[in-house]
Design a protein around this nucleic acid. Structure first.
Lengths: 209, 209
DNA sequence: CCGGTTATGATACATATGTATCATCAAGAG
DNA sequence: CTCTTGATGATACATATGTATCATAACCGG
């Protein structure tokens, strides 16, 4: 065999270049030449590692999904040991809020793909259906166990709670992306609603009757 | 004056054609020639009434905003006379859920514009900031009055409740657009959360302690 | 009726972009 | 060393698209 290069690494740098462009100027401004320039490689190389633009876009989406999953795992693993349902849930949902710049980039591009998936049937819709569904199931399970353990008061429809909370976090995320809310505001709203779920009275001092 | 045509009407038909295309195939597939063909006019006419593509896109966004406002007004006016806060709030939020096909088209295109606004600073971000903010203030006021009238139990941060509910509705809307939830499911989740706010016990028979 | 303004058609132009082709270089195998 | 194969560079090609230009028809005021 002649000189061999780490394909995975090359592909990663190219995908990262695409992500930078898409996060800065929008996914619709992504062009093969632009990606090549941003990555500091020739157009030919982009073609070489991703034969077509569709494949490059697909690979980028896969990468986004992969990164997202690994971030979740990291965050979950970092929860301090008295691992309450509240903390776990808050951790899961916090990932939906764009706080720092890389997170913002991720969410902008991810949302761009989601919009594409709304009309482009060829683009895999699984990431935007199966992913959230999985998350919803996790949340539902957390709710259930928290309810039976007594951490979560009252009775309710855990599935609906989970769906709602997920939608809430997602909606807050886009509101941040669009400039309506600051990340801190969104975090506050999210926390407020979690407080409501887990019993506000116990958490807001001075208001206990 | 020579032959004069109703410019507003022509512009409307062209904008509607653009909306059909954007709703069906995505905003990124919109082309001047495509719009012309869809509208049944010549390319020149699209250029004549909207000098540049930017202006056409801008006009379409304005149209979307206008339509949205008028739909809200219609819905609000249609609320039966014992106009409870609950009914008004539910009406306001229901507009965020894509139920029928025209509504879906609207929300798909609207979301596409929102994504554009995330990176394209030239595109007016007001619709996606001022609009929701206004709605949030309305909701906040409704919460406040409902609280003082006793319709809404407990005390809480009306502004945060309003922001959260708005984000919830919006998040549910996108989850429908992306195929994760059916419109009915989303409606159910929304109603469930409203039930929670307005006191679930009074609404779910058989669970009163 | 006629001149001028509005409206519309046909077409040209420049450019950006995805994709394909041809050539060349590099490096390890035999 | 050389020769095969993987990696990369330069460039060509076809096309789509936004925009501009030229011409012409329709209509109304004087």
């Amino acid at each position: 065999m002649p000189r061999t290069v780490d394909h995975a690494e090359r592909r990663a740098t190219i995908v990262e270049a695409l992500l930078r462009i898409a996060g800065r100027d929008g996914l619709h401004t992504v062009t093969l030449r632009g990606v090549a320039a941003e990555a500091g490689v020739s157009l030919r190389l982009v073609q070489y590692y991703f034969h077509t633009k569709q494949q490059l876009l697909k690979a980028t989406l896969d990468q986004l999904e992969h990164d997202s999953r690994s971030r979740w795992a990291t965050r979950l693993a970092a929860i301090p040991e008295p691992r309450t349902a509240r903390a776990t849930i808050e951790t899961l949902l916090a990932e939906a809020l764009p706080t720092d710049e890389p997170s913002r980039t991720f969410h902008v591009v991810w949302t761009s793909y989601a919009v594409l998936a709304m009309t482009d049937g060829t683009l895999a819709a699984q990431p935007f259906v199966a992913g959230p569904n999985l998350l919803r199931e996790q949340l539902t399970a957390l709710f259930e166990s928290a309810r039976s353990s007594g951490e979560l008061p009252g009775h309710g429809d855990s599935a609906k709670e989970a769906s709602g909370l997920l939608a809430l976090a997602h909606g807050l995320g886009t509101s941040v992306l669009v400039g309506q809310h600051s990340p801190a505001e969104a975090e506050g709203v999210l926390r407020y609603h979690l407080d409501g779920l887990f019993g506000r009275a116990a958490l807001t001092p001075g208001k206990t009757p």
